[in-house]
Design a protein around this nucleic acid. Structure first.
Lengths: 247, 247
DNA sequence: TCTGGTCTTTTGGTCTGACAATAGGTCTTG
DNA sequence: CAAGACCTATTGTCAGACCAAAAGACCAGA
């Protein structure tokens, strides 16, 4: 019998991370529900036998994960909360920027996610969703709109599609990559003004399918739309002068 | 003029979170590259004019985001590191579990992501990827395999597909939802043994397409596979007795 | 009665100084 | 020259103090 690699490395957790882990699992297992106010730091220190600063470091760990918020003052304290979309978006943003993920990877990911968003939106969209989408479409349709405004409204439109899917996970993914995509587009879109009519037309057709409750058409048209855009970007980036970053 | 709601809430950031934010942007902007050892806590305290405990809380905030690790001892200190896949997976896991996302949402998300993974894998797969996939497939093909082992190997196979796409973001997404999917499957798969031959056959056809470098076929077959599975699960859950959780 | 101050109390936020635990380097000694 | 003792720098933890903020009680004056 081979006895190599039987024992993994011993890590020696810190007290603060152990306490944070205990509280985290308590929250995720439902023992501490949203809105519950935790004991005061001094009480926690007493209960756990740790110092107050150690307890505070554990709370910072949880705060960074979006699982608690702390407020000073009477009736203050650390309040349990469910992780908000913003928290996961920030985490993904750090990952994307930290790993310097390529624009192409982001476009690939979008091409995977958005058609499904459109598909689900065609089923789950509410009247409020349709109203938001219509308003954003109008904002994009303004004649002689400035490029920055167009790009921003475009990003908002795509995000609104994701939210109309009423799948929190997919819309969180879209929020996370949307930022990077928008940034990449503004860097490589000096000639994108000429494709605006096509973009608007594609959006209209997608919106029609979603309004009409036709999941298959919505998905198909969205796939075509984002795929065309990906190809377009590849066209711009390959033949032209390559230095795109200008800040 | 209406003067209501002109002023939003004032937040009053803490010193520790401000410092953490400064360091975070320094890291993401590349001013602090991976492997850099930060100044000691006492130095940071002196440089910033803050107390050491405040500096430490800022470091815990960054540690939770996976941007630094700290080690005691001489030549120790806080070392800058890029966020690892595990960090973003943990964040997503907290989100999924905390928000109690439905099994259906996870399946929808998988249905969006995995076909694209298969598509990209058909282009980017290495020999090592193919070898891993083959080995996992063999593990699943063992006759009279126990259900738990089958489910686990199945999850590993799907994850390996995502990794073969060589798109870090997509494979991170798959890791994150894989856990929840596996859990949901074990809860609703008392009769899933009967579909094993179909699963194995679908996997073989997908693998063939990936080996042959046929992105369209790989994507199409994967879509069919996961979609069929989703329908299957819906069939199981609707007509049968509903109480599925047994722990 | 209502509005705005002022005090009190409770709580998180920060600072200081100390010691423990750890891990790398150095020196001693067989 | 190698094994172990010692040294030292650094994070981990603790205790105690004070500051800052927030909520409620109380009060004064229009």
């Amino acid at each position: 019998m081979n006895a190599d690699r039987v024992f993994g490395p011993v890590v020696n957790q810190t007290a603060s991370s152990l306490l944070a882990e205990r509280i985290r699992t308590a929250i995720l297992d439902g023992q501490l529900s949203e809105g519950t106010v935790m004991p005061t730091e001094r009480e926690l220190a007493e209960q756990t036998g740790l110092g107050r600063s150690t307890v505070r470091e554990a709370l910072r760990l949880l705060q960074a994960a979006g699982l608690i918020t702390s407020r000073p003052g009477a009736k203050g304290g650390s309040v349990v909360q469910l992780p908000h979309v913003d928290d996961v978006v920030r985490s993904l943003d750090v990952f994307i920027r930290g790993r310097k993920m390529s624009f192409a990877s982001l476009l690939e990911t979008r091409e995977a996610i958005e058609p499904m968003c459109a598909r689900l939106a065609a089923r789950a969209r509410t009247d409020a969703d349709l109203e938001t989408l219509g308003r954003l479409h109008d904002r994009m349709s303004v004649k002689r709109i400035r490029q920055a405004d167009f790009t921003e409204a475009n990003a908002a439109w795509h995000l609104a599609i994701a939210e109309a899917s009423h799948n929190e996970l997919l819309s969180a993914f879209m929020s996370a990559i949307g930022r990077g995509i928008e940034l990449g587009i503004t860097q490589s879109s000096r000639k994108s003004a000429e494709v605006r009519p096509q973009v608007l037309h594609a959006h209209e057709r997608i919106l029609d399918a979603i309004r009409g409750g036709d999941p298959d058409a919505a998905m198909r048209r969205m796939l075509k739309h984002v795929h065309a855009y990906t190809e377009q970007v590849a066209d711009w980036q390959l033949p032209d002068d390559l230095p795109l970053d200008d800040d």
